[in-house]
Design a binder for these strands. Structure first.
Length: 544
RNA sequence: GGCCUUAUGGUCAAGCGGUUAAGACGACGCCCUCUCACGGCGUAAACUCGGGUUCGAGUCCCGAUAAGGUCACCA
């Protein structure tokens, strides 16, 4: 068979350039020794998964830590999954979480285009080369034929797929091929696999360590009938010409590694290093599974923005899952930026971790407690502008007032900061009682109405805004004493039956009266912030 | 089902042949205290199971089991 003739018939010379052109256009990168070139290569589906951030962070850290390059490539080879505006979503969400690219889609860069659809010519040039070398061939099998093959294989309990004797088009005669072409039959280009599944090799994976890979024997499709490459082929071509040195990707790719190894070999390209990281899982009843786009809201990056998790908090949590010694480092250097942590790919977990929102919340609380009141104000404000209710947006009309609220709730100036705020949404809800527009008390006292009324009204009578904290508390105790409550905790504990209750019970009634809540930060300060008028009005309201 | 991967408390995990088997989150208890939060102290809680190798195994090897991934003209 004249392979050159076939190659020309399938992919005419005028559609491609000579191979040397591409090698020259995309030369080896001039980078310091040890520098790694990594990438993130998402599909533009419009959905950004937590796993995308996870793997992005790993790649970004490795590249930048080593003085290398981190770029973004859009894998838009699947027409069906493409969504308008998806690239903007990718950019925006990664930027929000502090992942920055050096080059790639919509950024400058010498190794583009960074959209696979725009690289058709390169793929064609190399597909042609493979055909010439007898390492690829056209396949005219229809869907029905493919299904028939599959049925036959499952019936006989054989490996499914297009290989060996099942690869009908592998040995088509020259005549048959040209007849099919003339008849205008649609076709794909398949790799003519030289592998043998009986042969196994050991392979060094950067995160898993030594693994064994079985040789590929599948004649995988490399060019679809529309001339667009499959992921496998595009991966080999792109990561070669974009000069990627290290590919960190999800472990769902591990099983197609044999295909990639064969493809790189067939193309005569040097294989990059690979690291396959495990995916983030979720407990689902008895079993665990990958975080699911459909079932788990927390799988989506937009979830964290909507809830108002601070980007640094999410990043920090990701790092704790990414590198086992990160948390220890963080405990030791709580104030250092994440970038100073020496990230090591070898310290990535070998088994999939369960997503733990409680842990994220803890990381988040601690992180939020490092912000000052102005930073918190800005953070909450920008969240409210995007996701808050109209009432919540109005909280920011009086900046001075809001700052006072934040100082109290964050415990600024105290010996230790409070850790009340987990995320913006929760924070905004937790301070709602400071604002009359959203003050919606559900008074739930542990004492009868009579007692509550007596306590509240007698406190209202003697309340003086100018009292300092201890004078204020003394008045509280006076009221307590007047109605048979213990003013001294020790006395109360010694004989609880001798009293109606104790000071803390009185404080609670007052607290509920003013805020509608049994648990709040310091009551005296709350009254100071609210001011005398509003404090008294609230007490009045509570008495009704 | 084939192939690949993984296996330490509820969760994340340290551990690289000799440890009283770290630490963090969570749970619980106590202290502090006007409640809450913070903080402090403490408690419970683990090497999946068999075989080897070795003076000695969570650690190395082999099985079993379980879990996860994957078997597309999707990535």
């Amino acid at each position: 068979m004249d392979l050159n003739k076939l190659a020309n018939a399938l992919i005419p010379d005028e559609n491609v350039k000579p191979l040397e052109y591409y090698e020259e256009k995309y030369p080896e990168r001039d980078l310091p020794k040890g520098a790694q070139v990594t990438r993130l290569a998402p599909s533009p589906t419009g959905f950004m998964h937590l796993g995308n951030l996870f793997v992005a962070l790993a790649n970004e850290r490795i590249a930048h830590q080593s003085g290398g390059t981190f770029y973004l490539r859009i894998e838009d080879t699947d027409e069906k999954r493409k969504v308008e505006g998806a690239v903007e979503v990718i950019h925006a969400s990664l930027k929000y979480f502090g992942v920055n690219f050096d080059e790639g889609a919509d950024l400058c860069g010498e190794y583009g285009p960074y959209y696979q659809r725009q690289r058709a010519e390169i793929y064609h040039a190399y597909a042609k080369e493979l055909i010439k070398k007898g390492l690829a061939y056209p396949c005219f099998c229809t869907e029905e034929e493919m299904e028939e093959i599959r049925n036959q294989q499952t019936e006989n309990k054989l490996l499914p797929g297009y290989y060996g004797e099942f690869a009908k088009c592998r040995n088509l005669s020259e005549e048959e091929i040209y007849d099919n072409l003339k008849a205008g039959k649609p076709y794909v280009i398949r790799l003519k696999s030289q592998g043998n599944v009986e042969v196994k090799h050991t392979f060094r994976d950067e995160v898993k360590g030594e693994i064994t890979v079985t040789e590929n024997n599948q004649d995988v499709v490399i060019l679809k009938s529309d001339g667009i490459p499959t992921y496998h082929f595009a991966h080999a071509i792109d990561d070669h010409f974009m000069r990627t040195t290290l590919v960190i990707r999800g472990e769902e790719w591990l099983s197609s590694l044999p295909i990639h190894i064969e493809l790189f070999k067939a193309l005569g390209f040097r294989l990059p290093k690979y690291g396959h990281n495990c995916s983030i899982q979720k407990q689902d009843g008895e079993t665990r599974r990958k975080l699911s786009k459909r079932k788990d809201p927390e799988a989506s990056l937009t979830f964290y923005r909507e809830q108002g998790y601070h980007p640094t908090a999410v990043r920090t949590y990701m790092m704790t899952l990414l590198n086992s010694n990160f948390e220890e480092w963080l405990l030791k250097f709580p104030d250092k930026p994440i970038e100073e942590f020496k990230y090591s790919i070898g310290k990535m977990g070998k088994s999939g971790a369960l997503f733990d929102i409680l842990k994220l919340n803890d990381v988040s609380k601690t992180m939020m407690a490092t912000l000052n009141e102005n930073e918190m104000y800005d953070f909450l404000k920008s969240w409210a502008e995007e996701f808050g209710t109209e009432t919540q947006k109005a909280y920011f009309n009086d900046k001075e007032y809001m700052l006072k609220v934040l100082v109290l709730c964050m415990g600024v100036g105290g010996k230790k900061r409070r850790k009340d705020f987990v995320c913006a949404k929760q924070a905004m809800e937790s301070i709602a009682y400071f604002f009359d527009e959203s003050f919606a008390p559900a008074y739930e006292y542990r004492f009868d109405q009579e007692t509550v009324k007596k306590i509240l009204s007698s406190f209202a009578e003697i309340y003086d805004e100018k009292d300092d904290n201890s004078a204020w508390f003394d008045k509280l105790k006076t009221v307590a004493g007047n109605y048979g409550f213990a003013t001294d905790m020790k006395a109360y504990k010694a004989d609880p039956t001798a009293f109606v209750g104790n000071v803390s019970d009185v404080a609670e009634m007052l607290r509920i009266g003013v805020t509608g809540l049994a648990n709040t930060p310091d009551l005296w300060t709350i009254m100071q912030i609210l001011g005398k008028d509003r404090t008294l009005k609230r007490l009045e309201k509570a008495l009704q």
